[in-house]
C-alpha cells in the first residue's frame, strides 16, 4: 500500500477476493470467451479462405515442383522449374518492366490523386460530378478501358495524335517504340486507378481536422506549404497502407498489356503476369508458370510484410 494515503487503504474491503492464480485463471477464461466469439465470427470466412485461397495456392505451390498437372500427367521434377525460372532471361525482363512500371505508375497516380483530392476537398461545388467522372474508368471493365485507350493512342487515327497533328506535330508512336509503350501502359493504368485513389485520399483528407489547416493558416503557411507540411504528413499512415494495396494491384499488371501491346515491342511491356499467362496457356509450361506465380506471390507478400513492419516501427517511434 506504499504511496496510497487514502483513508481505508489498508481496510478489509480493499483486500483482494481472488488469489493471483484465480485472477489469472478467470482473466484467461474471459479472454478466451472473447476470442471464441471472434473465432466464431471468423470461422465461415476461414472456411471460405481455405477452400478458395489456401487450397489453390497450396496446389499451385505443389505444381511448381512438377510438370503437367493441369493438362497432361503430373510428374515431380524437384526444383527444376524454379531453377529454370531463375535463369530465364525473359522473366528478368518482365520483372524489370514490372518494377519500372510500378515505381512510375504508383508515384504518378499517388501524386495526382492527393493533389486532386485536396482540390476537390477545397472546392466542394460540382465536386460530385468530378468524383463521378474520375471514378468512371473503374466502372468500365478493364478490357473495355484498354480498348478505349487503344483508340486514344492509335498512331493513325488515335485522338491524341489527331490533336497533335492539328498543331502541326508528327504524331507520337505510343505503342510501337520503347519506352513509349510502357509509359502508355502507365498512363492507362493511372487513368484507370486515379478515381479510386482520389476518393481514397479524399476520405483521408477530409479526416484531417479543419482546425489543423486553420492553425497552419494562422501560422502563416501558404496553401502549398499547408498541403505539403500538414495534409500530406497527416495522410502518412494511410499512405503506407495505400502503398501496400497499390503494390499488390500493380504487381499483377496484365489486362492493358494483353489488349494494347501483347508484351511488345521487343518485350518492352512484358510483365510478370503476362509472362505467366503465356507460359501457362500458350505453351502449357505449367511448372514454370506456377513457379513464377509462387515467386511473384512471395515477393508481394514480402513487400506487404515489409510495409506493415515499417508502419509498426513508425508508430512505435511516434508513440
Amino acid at each position: 500500500m506504499e504511496g496510497s494515503v487514502a483513508a481505508g487503504a489498508a481496510e478489509e474491503w480493499a483486500e483482494l477476493t481472488l488469489s493471483p492464480r484465480q485472477y489469472r485463471q478467470r482473466a484467461r477464461r474471459y479472454r478466451a470467451r472473447t476470442s471464441r466469439r471472434a473465432i466464431g465470427f471468423l470461422a465461415p470466412y476461414t472456411a471460405i479462405w481455405a477452400v478458395f485461397l489456401a487450397f489453390p495456392v497450396g496446389w499451385g505451390v505443389w505444381l511448381s515442383f512438377n510438370t503437367g498437372g493441369i493438362l497432361g500427367t503430373r510428374q515431380f521434377v524437384g526444383f527444376e522449374n524454379w531453377t529454370r525460372a531463375w535463369g530465364d532471361t525473359e522473366i528478368r525482363t518482365a520483372v524489370r518492366n514490372t518494377a519500372v512500371y510500378m515505381v512510375i505508375a504508383i508515384a504518378v497516380v499517388f501524386g495526382l490523386a492527393i493533389f486532386l483530392a485536396s482540390l476537390l476537398n477545397k472546392h466542394r461545388r460540382g465536386s460530385n460530378f468530378f468524383k463521378l467522372a474520375l471514378y468512371f474508368p473503374l466502372l468500365a471493365p478493364p478490357i473495355l478501358g484498354a480498348m478505349m485507350w487503344f483508340f486514344m493512342v492509335h498512331f493513325d487515327f488515335g485522338v491524341l495524335n489527331l490533336i497533335l497533328r492539328q498543331f502541326g506535330g508528327a504524331g507520337i508512336n505510343y505503342l510501337g517504340e520503347n519506352p513509349n509503350a510502357l509509359l502508355t501502359i502507365v498512363a492507362v493504368e493511372v487513368w484507370r486507378g486515379l478515381g479510386f485513389w482520389v476518393l481514397f485520399y479524399l476520405a483521408g483528407i477530409q479526416a484531417v481536422p479543419e482546425e489543423l489547416l486553420a492553425a497552419g493558416r494562422i501560422d502563416g503557411a501558404k496553401a502549398w506549404r499547408r498541403f505539403a507540411r500538414i495534409t500530406v504528413p497527416t495522410l502518412r499512415p494511410l499512405l503506407l497502407f495505400a502503398l501496400v494495396v497499390a503494390i499488390i494491384f500493380n504487381a499483377q499488371l496484365f489486362d492493358s498489356v494483353q489488349v494494347l501491346t501483347e508484351g511488345g515491342p521487343a518485350l518492352g511491356t512484358a510483365t510478370v503476369v503476362w509472362f505467366i499467362f503465356k507460359r501457362m496457356f500458350a505453351f502449357q509450361d505449367t511448372g514454370l508458370a506456377f513457379a513464377t506465380s509462387v515467386g511473384l506471390l512471395l515477393v508481394i507478400l514480402a513487400a506487404t510484410l515489409l510495409s506493415f513492419w515499417a508502419l509498426a516501427k513508425r508508430q512505435a517511434r511516434e508513440a
Binding site: 498512331f155 493513325d156 505503342l175 517504340e177 513509349n180 509503350a181 515491342p265
Partner: peptide, 8 residues
C-alpha cells in the same frame, strides 16, 4: 512498328 497494326 506501332504506327499501323494489322487492322490499321
Amino acid at each position: 512498328l506501332g504506327q499501323y497494326d494489322r487492322e490499321g
